[in-house]
C-alpha cells in the first residue's frame, strides 16, 4: 500500500490566492505575545527589599489587640523577627531575643516586633507564654509582612535603621544575646 505521490499537498500549482493577513490580526497576536512576555519578565524581578532599600510601613495586629504601625517608629531602630511555634530553631533564640529586648528597651531607641509566620493562635500564644516574651507580637495576616521581605523560612530577623532602611538581615537563629547586640549596635542613632 504505497503512498500515492500526488496527494493534493503538492499536486497542483494553487489557483486561488490566499487573502493577505490582516494587519490587525498581526498586531493583536503581537500584543498578546508581548503582553505575556512582559508578565513573565515582571514576575522574574525579585521584589524583595534588599539591604539599603526603604522598608514600606506595615501594620501588625498584635496578640494583645493593639494596632502596631511601623510608621510610628520613625527615628528608632526596628528589629523584626519572624518565628513560628512549630519551628524548633525559633525556640533556640526566643530567650536570647527576650533578654536583648529587656536590655535595650530602657534606652528607648530600639523597637522589637515579633511576627508569627503561618501559625495558629493557640500554639503561638502558648509559645509566647512559654518563653515569657514581652515585646509586641502578632500574626502575619495574609502573609503580607513576610511578603515584603520574601522570607525563605523561619527564623529570620530583619533590622530597619532609624531612617527606615533595611540595615541588616539574619537568616537562622541567633546563637547568643551578644550576636543580637552586634547586629543592632552599629545602627543605633
Amino acid at each position: 500500500m504505497s503512498l500515492n505521490p500526488s496527494t493534493p499537498a503538492s499536486a497542483e500549482p494553487t489557483p486561488p490566492r490566499a487573502a493577505p493577513l490582516p494587519w490587525w490580526a498581526v498586531a493583536l497576536a503581537f500584543l498578546l505575545l508581548v503582553g505575556f512576555l512582559t508578565i513573565l519578565g515582571l514576575a522574574l524581578r525579585n521584589p524583595a527589599v534588599e539591604v539599603g532599600d526603604h522598608v514600606p510601613p506595615f501594620i501588625l495586629e498584635s496578640y494583645n489587640g493593639e494596632q502596631v504601625n511601623t510608621a510610628d517608629f520613625q527615628g528608632k531602630v526596628m528589629l523584626i523577627n519572624f518565628w513560628a511555634s512549630w519551628c524548633d530553631p525559633c525556640a533556640q533564640e526566643a530567650a536570647e531575643l527576650e533578654a536583648a529586648w529587656k536590655a535595650l528597651q530602657p534606652g528607648g531607641k530600639v523597637v522589637f516586633l515579633g511576627v508569627a509566620y503561618l501559625d495558629t493562635d493557640r500554639e503561638a500564644l502558648n509559645y509566647l507564654k512559654q518563653y515569657g516574651i514581652t515585646y509586641p507580637n502578632g500574626p502575619d495576616n495574609q502573609t503580607r509582612i513576610s511578603n515584603i521581605f520574601r522570607i525563605r523560612g523561619v527564623p529570620e530577623t530583619y533590622l530597619v535603621d532609624a531612617q527606615g532602611r533595611l540595615a541588616a538581615v539574619k537568616i537562622g537563629p541567633f546563637a547568643s544575646v551578644d550576636e543580637i547586640f552586634q547586629m543592632i549596635q552599629p545602627h543605633l542613632p
Binding site: P8, A9, P20, A29, F30, L33
Partner: peptide, 20 residues
C-alpha cells in the same frame, strides 16, 4: 525564540495557504 518564530510566520503567512 517566540518573537523570531512569530516574525517568520507572519512573513510566510500568505505562502502557507491551504491547497485543498
Amino acid at each position: 525564540s517566540a518573537l523570531t518564530a512569530f516574525a517568520l510566520l507572519v512573513w510566510r503567512w500568505e505562502k502557507l495557504h491551504a491547497e485543498g
